[in-house]
Simulated scan of single mutants.
Amino acid sequence: MRHTGHVTLNASEQLVVAAAAAAAPSVFNTQPWSFTFTEDGMEVHADPHDAWMPTASAARDVRLSCGAAVFNARASLARRGHGSRVSVLPDAGDPLLVARIAVTDAAPDPVLDELYRWVDSRRTNRYPFRPEGVPADVLALLHDAARREGATLRLLEAEPEYQRMLTSIRHATWTEDEDVREDRDARLSPRAEEPAIPVGNLGPVPRGGRPDDPPVRDMAVGLDLPGRGSAAFEPHPDLAVLETSDDDAGSWIAAGQALQRLLLEATGHGIAASFANQPLEDAELRPDVSGGAAHYGYPQMVLRLGYATEQPPASPRRPLSQVIRRTAA
């Protein structure tokens, strides 16, 4: 028997679902979202003001972040025993309304229920990884996780494609616009009231130099931040590109859901991830990320995957009172 009735979350459930959604990864840890609870579900809104950076990817990054929050909300609802139905960009007159999530009395998705286990332990890991690669069977699971949300995860393993990606990452890092660097430095400076990313989450300064910089993103390159230290990183990590067939706001939200699904799957198998999105933030360099495999679609994220040598702390989150707009009575 098919159930389609709506369910109203009680106050306790609303807080738990909002906390799970807010635990999603976001561009520069800006958490560019807010949540409204209604009688039949939840709305996820983009709140891009603090997240608006002087990069070509700013609008895309906000929607990707919100898509990851949508996925976490779905997983949390499944753990609470609820089904859910998502409507992406449901109001053409309100482009900041990313999604409506209807809570239903349908049976919860058991896979989402299982993935919820890893919401609180998922981290963006900017520490060195061990030299061994991710097993093929785990990579297949990550590929399937992305596919379930309408995206493709493409592992870069053949040459010269792998080296071309490294070149793109390094070139984007070295040629970063001054206003982008200044914006990032202001967000991370010890003089900031609350640095966007604490030192413990930035990881150590990569040792090495041109042209052998490792493909790990140093978010605080050029900043002297006490307590970071330095470390040698793995020279040949697994790199993968998350791609979608289209490149509009709906596709960016789908990419965010795909990203979070695969990240939770990876966490459950002991795999850590960080991002090397520098070339995606430059409109001229972004096409190089797909290179000869452009038929896969549009690149949305570049991931570095591997087994971590150290687990960073949880990144700070805004109080729920700042991200919940309204609760259902």
Rank of each mutant, 00 (worst) to 15 (best):
R2W: 10
M219L: 15
S26Y: 02
T124G: 02
T244N: 05
A46T: 10
V180W: 06
R126H: 09
A145D: 04
P204R: 06
R80T: 02
M53N: 13
A266W: 00
H82L: 04
P226G: 05
R164F: 10
D247Y: 06
T173L: 10
E194M: 11
H295A: 13
P206Y: 07
N201A: 15
V134E: 07
N72Q: 06
M42S: 01
L262A: 03
R122L: 10
P135Y: 09
M219T: 04
A266P: 04
A19Y: 00
A18P: 01
L280T: 07
A51E: 05
L64P: 02
R79N: 12
L155I: 15
T175S: 13
A51S: 12
Y162K: 03
A22W: 05
R228W: 02
P198Q: 09
R85D: 13
P237L: 03
G306Q: 02
H3G: 04
R286W: 06
D47A: 15
A314V: 13
F71D: 11
A329I: 06
S65C: 09
A314G: 11
Q278F: 01
Q278K: 03
L153A: 05
L188W: 02
A51T: 07
A19P: 00
L166N: 12
R326N: 07
R60Y: 02
D61T: 10
E281T: 04
Q322A: 11
A249M: 08
A272M: 05
W118M: 10
G229N: 08
L141Y: 01
A151V: 02
D185L: 02
T267Y: 01
E281M: 08
G222A: 06
E310F: 12
D105M: 03
A272F: 01
G229T: 08
E39V: 10
P198A: 06
R148T: 09
R79L: 14
V302S: 03
W33S: 01
T124A: 13
L239K: 04
E310K: 14
P25L: 08
A106L: 02
A249E: 14
R170H: 15
A328C: 11
P54V: 08
G256N: 04
D113M: 11
L285C: 06
Q260E: 15
A46F: 05
D94S: 11
A329T: 11
G209L: 07
A258D: 04
R122D: 00
V221Q: 13
S34A: 14
R154S: 14
L285V: 07
A102R: 15
E178F: 10
V119A: 03
D247P: 05
G67S: 11
L142I: 07
L166F: 05
D137Y: 10
R147I: 01
S34E: 14
T152A: 11
V221K: 12
I197T: 04
A19R: 12
D179N: 14
V119W: 00
I197F: 02
H3W: 09
S76G: 07
A146F: 01
